[in-house]
Design a protein around this nucleic acid. Structure first.
Length: 529
RNA sequence: GGCGCCGUGGCCGAGUGGCUAGGCAGGGGCCUGCAAAGCCCCCUACUCCGGUUCGAAUCCGGACGGCGCCUCCA
């Protein structure tokens, strides 16, 4: 804690919430739901201690919305949890910067592809940082990997799984045994189920001349509108551009090898995208492409499907403009199980904010008590207090819950158990008497939790941008109020408090002075002496 | 049409064949000059109807209700 000349004490609890990762887990095995087998499976990485993950990234034709971020945040949680457990994680998240939508966006704006996607990518990076996501090891762009895609198509052609028609190349699904397993499509069992059949028919593109309407395009020949957008590449089949699914196969294998441990994305990608990625990759290598497929359910908004017509496809800036905090958004979007549809509501954000604050508040309280308790650790070595035991139990419960297919609800329950126990201990002991050992254990637990959740650090960082004038004014008023209180002039003191509260500042008195929550910043004005 | 999901207390949201999470909100109390924060107590639920069982909200069947996906939407 630092006190400046004006007597203002800056406490974002003194100790910054650590963002650094280090192994913590107890070595139990993580079980995840593999969409391929449709059951929980133990994560057994190809190389012990090292996990490779490919996560489908955004198509950068427009700013990502909260639905996208629900999925990305879940993947971030998975990534952080794996690291928490001690795995070395290599994650790839691509940027799809060439496809129908990006090209259309470019054509509409009259700019070329790169000029169109560039700003969207920048915005994406900004939102990514706002929500406190960790940076993946690789973030390749489709447009920079066209060569790899072309050679992948060549390999498929050599193996007889693909054929060319008028400069386009298609994947012949009927020539591949086991096509469609991920989506539950079984071609060998006679005609495809009506549903899949319909999906196939719908996917059939009249524009192209396929052997089988269900075949999908690997390379789109020609240069119709693409030319204007600068989205045309040379290939052995003439000018064209890659098919949608191709990029992920090519980039995943380039960075992570022929076989990945985990491939993750939104449920909507199960078919056709992931199904076709498997077809391409395994068709080319003859090896298993991904050992585990994870899919996140979609986000709803106020109980409704997100759609442009409803105007509920919120972006991160939309929500920040409404005064919502990144930490609240992050918490809310992480607080539902990833395979369950999550309903985003503004009431939910409010509750999330309170939940974050409850944990964050405890952390601050522990830090303050720890400062006060330094040197007062008289507990005999080896003896552990009820709180220390509660913390140890919570740590185990947290890991058990997360190991069970990332059961975030139960994991959070373990955290709130510590919040209650620690508050109890602090209330009972009075801030000065709590033993340092149990406080340190509690603090370590909270920070440990946050290595996975990343919400306390985010909450801390939100304190940085504040209105200096408002703050100076508030400090002055708080000082006046402290004088009034010292004079037992309650009427004046209460009036000032209302004044502060009217400006949205939360006021909290303590024996040492007055603490105010201004925006996201906590400012403490010490009582004069 | 096909595939699939869900129905838990005011709201959100886990979970288990019997030991009845957690958060938010609400009520009462403690603390406080009054508040706030925190603590304690209360509000103890599982759509309905059958069945299995010593015992089901948890298993089975049915009904009703809500919903998702099935063209490049995470």
């Amino acid at each position: 804690m630092e006190t400046d000349s004006s007597g203002v004490v800056w406490t974002n609890c003194g100790r910054a919430c650590p963002k650094r990762q280090r192994p913590t887990g107890g070595g139990a095995i993580l079980r995840l739901h593999n969409s391929m087998s449709r059951r929980l499976e133990e994560l057994r990485p190809l190389q012990p201690g090292r996990v490779t993950i490919y996560t489908c990234g955004p198509t950068v034709y427009d700013r990502a919305h909260i639905g996208n971020f629900r999925t990305f945040l879940w993947e971030d949680l998975l990534r952080r949890y794996l690291r928490w457990k001690g795995y070395q994680v290599t994650q790839v998240m691509n940027l799809t910067d060439v496809d129908d939508r990006t090209i259309n966006a470019a054509l509409e704006s009259g700019a070329d592809l790169a000029a169109t996607t560039g700003p969207v990518i920048e915005a994406f990076a900004e939102d990514w940082g706002t929500l406190g996501l960790e940076e993946p090891e690789y973030r390749p762009r489709a447009t920079e990997h066209v060569d790899g895609m072309v050679s992948l198509v060549e390999r498929l052609t050599e193996r007889g799984l693909a054929y060319e028609r008028d400069g386009s190349v298609y994947f012949a699904i009927s020539r591949q045994a086991g096509y469609g397993q991920l989506a539950g499509i079984d071609l060998s069992a006679g005609p495809a189920p009506a549903g899949a059949q319909r999906a196939f028919e719908a996917a059939a593109d009249e524009e192209y001349d396929k052997e089988d309407a269900r075949d999908f395009v690997l390379w789109k020949g020609g240069a119709r509108g693409e030319q204007a957008a600068g989205a045309v590449w040379d290939s052995p089949w003439g000018p064209g551009r890659p098919g949608w699914h191709l990029e992920c196969s090519a980039m995943a294998m380039e960075y992570l090898g022929d076989t990945l441990d985990i491939h993750a994305g939104g449920v909507d990608n199960l078919f056709p995208h992931h199904t076709n990625e498997i077809a391409q990759s395994e068709g080319a290598t003859g090896k298993i492409f991904a050992r585990m497929w994870l899919h996140a359910a979609h986000l709803q908004v106020e109980g409704e499907k997100m759609s442009k017509s409803l105007g509920n496809c919120y972006t991160i800036p939309d929500l920040l403009d409404r005064g919502l905090r990144p930490s609240s958004l992050r918490y809310l979007l992480l607080s539902g199980h990833y395979r369950t549809r999550l309903n985003f509501t503004f009431a939910g954000v409010e509750a999330a904010a309170k939940s974050v604050d409850r944990i964050h508040q405890l952390r601050r309280r522990v830090c303050e008590a720890l400062d006060a308790a330094t040197g007062k650790d008289e507990s005999p070595p080896g003896a552990s207090s009820a709180l220390e035991e509660a913390v140890a139990r919570a740590r185990r419960d947290f890991e058990t819950a997360m190991d069970d297919d990332l059961n975030v609800s139960q994991a959070l329950a373990a955290v709130f158990g510590v919040v209650r126990e620690a508050n109890q201990a602090l209330t009972a002991a009075g801030s000065g008497d709590s033993r340092a050992a149990e406080l340190r254990a509690t603090l370590a637990f909270l920070d440990d939790f946050d290595r996975v959740w990343g919400v306390l650090a985010l909450r801390d960082s939100e304190g940085t941008e504040t209105d200096g004038d408002l703050e100076a004014w508030a400090v002055a008023r708080a000082e006046a109020r402290l004088k009034a209180r010292a004079d037992r002039d309650w009427a004046t003191a209460d009036a000032i408090r209302e004044e502060l509260q009217t400006r949205g500042i939360a006021v909290e008195d303590s024996p040492g002075g007055t603490r105010m929550l201004i925006g996201s910043n906590t400012v403490t004005v010490a009582a004069g002496d």
